[in-house]
Design a protein around this nucleic acid. Structure first.
Lengths: 360, 360
DNA sequence: CCGATCGATGATAGCGTTATCATTCGACCC
DNA sequence: GGGTCGAATGATAACGCTATCATCGATCGG
């Protein structure tokens, strides 16, 4: 506890004698911002700037005494570190970019929430990029985002232009592709197999005895992929045609209702309707009710996602459970592991699960 | 068109003679990152760094000829500007922080989407902060966010701690509070009056002839505010008691169903149920159906928000329309106006509108 | 025909941090 | 008892960009 040097005594006087960045300090800089800098804190505390930096970032290297005193000065001055400067010097921005088509439906939003929260707890923040708007290509978005020098990138899907891949590769940072699976990710991938989902749903419904199928499917890469394997899996059973109403994106309850209307107008009533999302399924359920159709007696309905409300619709919606938050969490963990130089799994399959409720 | 100086000729040779940052260039820096910098581009193009900077940021100051050539070098080298460095030097981060409780329901998510998209088009990006997680106080979030030196901040709500207000004020940047209204914003506010919503809904339902009211209300500042004025507005009519089921946040269809169950267990069946969100209302509608209650004959249901599905539920949901995307848009516009030094309205009321459908 | 003006470009000096190496000083070991 | 080591702190020089002022011709009005 007893130390020769006594920082507190020293700076108290310094603190009193010199106000924060007045015009008195030698020559006035023509660019200074007026806000408190690390150097100001250092002067007031009577230590070198690097010590203040250590107090903030590597406190274990600093004496308890110095630590306490510098911290008190920081509190007193209301110093807010400048992470632009810190990031420039350390080449670590503590920023993670997340690129998703949309956050306006909980499909992706929950994963982003979990990602954001996990990363925040570790001192990172999330830069949001929306690729679903037609005005911004993923290409441009990547450029804008990389100029912030993020420490990692979260991507939705596995289909990216060659240029996008190259730029991400060139950035030499962890990249996590999500919501799908591939043996050849840019870097890492956290998702599940849409092909498998399609096949599993087909087998499930076939086993339940359904024979005439219809689909309400979003106009979306992954949804269409599930549709393809769903149909392929039924081929061996002699099913050659699965009438499909293509709903636009973003999916909505209305589009689900419209999808069923369209489907029923183009074909005899199927005995099972497979939807590419719970939202669409909810719409199908609603439209079925409006038409006096009983689900599942007249027609079964299958969703995808297992959103919050799936168990609470009438009838309760059978669906495919996806661990949406798990995707965000695994992605965050993979990034953090990489930051720490720990080994990571390149391909993480979060799987899925058929959830049978009342609608099938 | 004819110029004495011929940049193209000059640098072509330079480009060929000197590869990007090899070990040959004098003394090797001990910290260089290896990625292409603005200086590299400048050398290759045979111009000064500042000219390259101008090509990127103020192209109108540069000759077409120089512009074209420098751009070709940028493309050839795959140069990605470093906005950390740029932000540090220019004191403009081109970053906007958005703090919302959650993005997992479209209430806030759509506004954030619109904000993000509008700002992106103007060269700004959005840093996402989630205040809804109990592990992170808004206080801490503000600190983390301000250390990025954002050019503006988007906040949800108007209730913030004194310290939060002070720190935001001290940052001297545009701050837009949203989703509520106050005559004394930190800086600007874009929202609507919850008090007025409560009163308006009360008058509307009273005028429709409803007399026994119940509420399913989220445990949320603004929802509770609407509830208060709703009840106050009914007092003159002799209504002294409005049984309320308080639903937790985040709201969900399940919580709406549970809310109705709770409400019906605590009181005689009201003839109108007012819900603090469409999600809850949807749950109430669902539970009513499960109990064989006819809406609105046995019981009217009123929502809040006018989410996408409100017109498509059965019966179609009467609700209060809020221009959710408009809030994001106005906020973005206010920020951009401030960046350009244009005058802005401190208080923007986006209003609301009762939407009468079938459920009332 | 000359000073004023303007357009294009450049030199210099930061912006606020942290990486890296250096220094100091007491403890400790053989 | 002298050399070694390690803990704590500091000096210096980047990090990659832009603000600011300077420079250099060309243009132009009187």
């Amino acid at each position: 506890m007893s130390r020769t040097k006594s920082p507190p005594a020293k700076q108290k006087s310094a603190a009193d004698g010199q106000s924060t960045k007045g015009p008195e300090g030698g020559r006035t800089s023509r660019r200074s911002s007026g806000s408190v800098t690390l150097e100001d804190v250092a002067k007031l505390a009577g230590v070198s700037p690097i010590t203040v930096s250590r107090v903030l970032n590597r406190p274990e290297l600093v004496t308890q005494e110095t630590l306490d005193y510098v911290r008190s000065v920081i509190a007193r001055t209301g110093y807010v570190p400048n992470l632009l400067a810190g990031g420039l010097a350390s080449r670590k921005s503590r920023l993670v970019a997340a690129i998703v088509p949309t956050i306006a439906n909980s499909m992706f939003a929950e994963g982003i929430e979990t990602l954001t929260e996990r990363l925040r707890a570790a001192g990172y923040q999330v830069l949001l990029g929306l690729s679903g708007f037609p005005t911004a290509s993923e290409e441009q978005l990547i450029g804008a985002v990389l100029s912030r020098r993020p420490d990692a990138v979260f991507l939705t899907g596995i289909t990216h232009s060659t240029q996008t891949r190259q730029r991400l590769l060139a950035a030499k940072i962890p990249v996590v592709e999500t919501w799908d699976l591939t043996p050849t990710p840019i870097d890492m991938v956290v998702g599940f197999s849409h092909e498998k989902v399609g096949r599993t749903v087909a087998e499930y419904l076939w086993a339940k005895g359904y024979r005439r199928f219809g689909m309400v499917c979003a106009d979306d890469t992954r949804a269409l992929l599930r549709r393809r394997t769903f149909i392929e899996a039924l081929a061996p059973y002699g099913i050659t045609d699965v009438p499909t109403a293509i709903a636009g994106t973003p999916t909505s309850l209305k589009r689900g209702r419209d999808g069923l209307i369209e489907l029923l107008s183009m074909t005899e009533r199927p005995d099972a309707i497979v939807c590419s999302s719970d939202v669409l399924a909810h719409g199908v359920l609603t439209e079925a009710r409006a038409r006096g159709l009983s689900v599942p007696r007249d027609m079964a309905v299958m969703g995808f996602g297992d959103l919050e409300y799936a168990p609470y619709t009438i009838p309760a919606l059978s669906t495919v459970r996806i661990d949406r938050r798990g995707i965000g969490q695994r992605a965050a963990e993979a990034m953090l592991a990489r930051f720490n130089g720990e080994p990571v799994q390149q391909v993480v399959d979060v799987g899925f699960e058929i959830v049978e409720r009342e609608s099938t």
